[in-house]
Each structure stands twice: as C-alpha cells, then as structure tokens.
Design a protein around this nucleic acid. Structure first.
Lengths: 209, 209
DNA sequence: TAAAAACTTGACCGAAAAGTCAGCTTTTAG
DNA sequence: CTAAAAGCTGACTTTTCGGTCAAGTTTTTA
C-alpha cells in the first residue's frame, strides 16, 4: 500500500479545504464537506488539524509565500517598463496557478481581514511602501509619467487578481468554462500594453517570466 | 407616534442587512445580529421578510439598478474618450455611494453567483456585449488602439470596484480609516489618465458626471 | 514478535442559529 | 365605539455543525 506521509496527507486536506473555502467562504464551509470531497470521515480531518480555524489559517498561510514573491521585479529591475511588465506577468500567473487560494485571500480582504496575522499585514504594508517608493523614484527621474504610485498599484492588483477572484464573471463573458491559456495571454498582453503606454513608459527591456 | 410606513421600515432592515452581509458574508451573518444592529427583535425581521434567503436576495436586488445604469456612457457618447471617462467616474461613484452593496455583490460573484437570478445575468451579459461592440467599433474607426475590449472592461471593473470591494486593503495602504473625497478624486484621475493614454485616445470631450 | 506509537472512525454531545407561533398591542375602518 | 386588521415579540422548536472520544486497526520499533 502507498505509504502516505503525514505532510502529504495534510497537503491533500489543505487542497480540498482551499477549494471549499474559495467556493463557500469560511462560514459557508462545513468540515464534513471538505472531508467528503476527499472521501475521509470528518473525524480524520480533526486528527490532522486542531480546528476549522486552524485549517483555514493554514490555507491562508499557504498563499502568503507566492503573494510576497510577486514584488520581486520592483527590486530586480531599475526600469519601470521591465519591472511592471514582469510584475503583471507574475501577478496573472498567481491568478492562474492559485485560483482557489487567491479567492480565499480575496474573501478574507473583502471582509476586513479578520484572520490575517498582524506580521503578514506588516510585511504587505512594507512591500507596498517599497514598491511605491521605487515608482516615485522612476517618476522623479523622468522615466515615466507622474502617475500616483499607490493608485497605480491598486489598479494592477485589481486587474490581475480579477482573473482568479471573479473567475465566474470572466468565464461568463468569455463564454468558456475555464479561462484558457490563450485568454491568460490576452489578459497579460492587454494589461501590459495599456499600463506601459498609459504611464508613458517607452523603452522596455523585461526579462520575461 | 410616528406612523411607520411598511416600505420605510423594510428599507431600514434592508440597509442593516446590507452592511452585515457585506462584512460577514451570507453564511456568516445572523438574522439576530441584523436585528440587534437596529434594535429590533429577531422575530420582527421575519414579519417583513420571509427568510434569510429572501432578505439577502432583496439586498442583491437593490444593487442591480445602480449597476445596470453605469454603462450609459457607452450608449450616450460616440467617442471613446468621453465614454470611458464618464464610465470610470460612474463606476467609482458606485463604489463610493454603495460600498456595502458593492461588497455583497462582489462576494456573490466571488462564490460563483449562486443567488443571482438568471434574468439579471442575461442583462449583464447583454450589456457587456453592447459595450465591447462599441469599443470594437471605435477601434475599427481608428479612434483608439487595438485593445482587447473585453479585457479592457475586466480591468475597468476590477480597478473601480476595488475601492469598495477591497476597501480594507485600500484604507490600510492609504493609512486612513475611510477613503476620503480627495482619495476618490485621485483614484478617478489616475485611472482615467492611464486608460485614455494607454488606449491611445487623444481628443476627449467628456461631459463629466 | 510483542508492545508502543500512530492512525482511523462511528457515534455522540452541546451550542448556535434559522424559523415558528401564540398571544399581545396598536392602528384602521365603518 | 368596536371589531377587524396589522404590527409586534418572547419563548419555543428544530436542525445543523463544530468538536470529542472511546474503541478499534495499522505501523513502527526494538
């Protein structure tokens, strides 16, 4: 018989929980449903996770790492075209690769982040400060138009995350059951085109992700 | 004693419900909490609304009208600059004026629109078709760059709604308790600037809302 | 191979919350 | 003025669901 490792099994439960939390929210999700979706008795879930809250927090936690990675282009490049191009690509990749976790996180923010640990909030705040500082620097050096950096970021977050968060709506209008590879490419290209030109960024030399 | 009008009282309950649903989601909201927030006994809520589901549906319903109004600029103008300028202004106004209902609606979409009536979905689909057709027309007439109209709309929706939906996050980074009038102005101006220039739209003659 | 450790689960418990209702008060109609 | 209609609510019922546990089985260890 396949020797199931404890961490592997926790990961299986975590994945199932992630999808359920994404589809139904925290309060709308029953532990029994998570269990049933992977053919486990409810009590078995409790052998691996202390409580519903712990399980939910673990799901949130699993998304923090990818989330924090995305700002890398702002550190890596000293050119707004390169940085924004890669940033948009990365953020849309996250929507594509973590559709459920993205929605759990979105749901969390939507409701005022009641379960988001303070240290994570601090890290996100710090990152945003760094990114806006970098943008302001580029503006000051005449490398891009005088665009409010924070509101630019808000737009980028919203426009990229929307492909995960409001997946239902996207699929409705794209008349498809799931967003295709091509659609993600279209989304990325369109956004990059609008944002670079819209910010008056000319030469770009992105490395491409 | 003040003669309580039935519709007025229903509206009061609806407002209270809207805020609670926005903050806690459908499953996370207790009828007793809605009642307590306006100092009514729970049973009184049930005198005006058959069930929690009915009340929730009514909240959703109340947001459909403002939502459908927003596309007016696409019918009213035959110039992408004018239309997009007013559209962005209108959409951000909605985030400002209906912060709770916006979030209830966002939550509904986030979870795959389980309670959205089919006829509303059809209306939204139809509107989107009209808007993208208009955009395509402007592109064909050389009035703007060849931008994928649907993805442009997705970005506009996301970027404008984010001020209501992810209000917590916006306030966190703006370091404020509530988004100020000036912040909304900044948001609007920034978005309009990026989008018009980003779409290669030159002359604009918006009426301003 | 035996004892300990790890894992599994059906049955149960208690709290929470949706929804009901009988009986009350207030308002309205004639 | 009175009877009916409308409005109100405390107390109750019912169901659902998070969480527990005792009694197992399987795996590991020595």
């Amino acid at each position: 018989m396949a020797p199931i490792n404890r961490d592997q099994k926790k990961a299986i439960i975590l994945n199932a929980a992630c999808e359920k939390f994404a589809n139904n929210g925290y309060a709308g999700t029953k532990i029994a449903d998570i269990a049933k979706s992977i053919n486990l008795p409810k009590a078995n879930i409790y052998y691996y996770f202390d409580s519903k809250e712990t399980l939910y927090r673990s799901v949130l936690d699993s998304f923090i790492q990818p989330l924090l990675m995305a700002t890398q282009p702002f550190d890596e490049y000293d050119h707004p075209g390169a940085a924004l191009t890669d940033y948009i690509k990365l953020k849309i990749q996250i929507s594509k690769n973590h559709p459920f976790a993205s929605r759990v996180f979105a749901n969390e923010i939507l409701h005022g982040a009641p379960s988001l640990p303070k240290d994570i909030i601090d890290q996100l705040t710090q990152q945003t400060s760094n990114s806006t500082a970098k943008l302001q620097q580029w503006i000051d050096r005449g490398m891009m138009d005088n665009i409010n950096p924070l509101h630019l970021l808000f737009s980028l977050w919203a426009s990229t995350q929307t492909y995960a968060d409001f997946n239902w709506q996207i699929c409705l209008h794209l008349k498809t059951a799931t967003i295709s590879e091509d659609d993600f490419t279209d989304a990325t290209d369109t956004l990059i085109k609008i944002v670079l030109k819209g910010c008056g960024i000319t030469a770009q030399e992105a490395k491409c992700v």
